[in-house]
């Protein structure tokens, strides 16, 4: 494994994308930054521009407004980039499956690498999910 890939796993910068969520997952993502969980320990940073991102955290059930924009945004991320679907909504649209405004599940729009289920997943679960992702990629 190259040094650069190793570095990627040690310093994943995450960008948070909400595609029509209920706020809960989003707040729990922010919670991960705060003193109790402090993901900066693992070199993770929440960054503001998608051009700096290594990991996309997608929450929510992908409504009609989001679908096209999500594709555009995924194009804009510099690769390699990992996509993590946070919460049940992003994973499978959850209770919003039958809504008229949630036409397509997330993984039919962009490739998803990891699903973290839960409504919302606890911050511990999110960290565990991302760490597992890192282990998987790093194990190659």
């Amino acid at each position: 494994m190259s040094l650069k890939l190793k570095a990627l796993l040690k310093s994943p910068w995450v960008f948070h994308l909400s595609t029509g969520s209920c706020n809960n997952c989003d707040i729990e993502i922010l919670d991960c930054l705060t003193p109790r969980f402090d993901i900066e320990r693992f070199g993770m940073l929440l960054i503001g521009s998608i051009k700096h991102a290594d990991v996309l955290l997608v929450t929510g059930s992908c409504n009609r407004m989001s679908v096209e924009r999500l594709k555009v945004l995924y194009e804009q991320v510099p690769k390699p980039c990992l996509v993590v679907a946070i919460g049940t909504c992003a994973g499978s649209r959850g209770i919003f499956k039958d809504s008229y405004n949630c036409p397509v599940p997330l993984d039919k729009i962009i490739p998803v690498d990891v699903y973290i289920p839960g409504c919302p997943p606890k911050p511990e679960a999110m960290i565990a999910g991302v760490v597992k992702l890192i282990e998987k990629v790093g194990g190659a």
Binding site: L3, K4, L8, K10, S11, E40, K51, P78
Partner: peptide, 28 residues
């Protein structure tokens, strides 16, 4: 900064790792 905010903060090599990682990323 992390200590002021009751956090642990990044490991010592973190700034170096960040730079190396960015070098491996795509240029857009």
């Amino acid at each position: 900064t992390a200590r002021v905010q009751y956090r642990v903060g990044p490991p010592f090599l973190q700034p170096f790792i960040d730079i190396v990682k960015l070098l491996g990323k795509e240029t857009v």
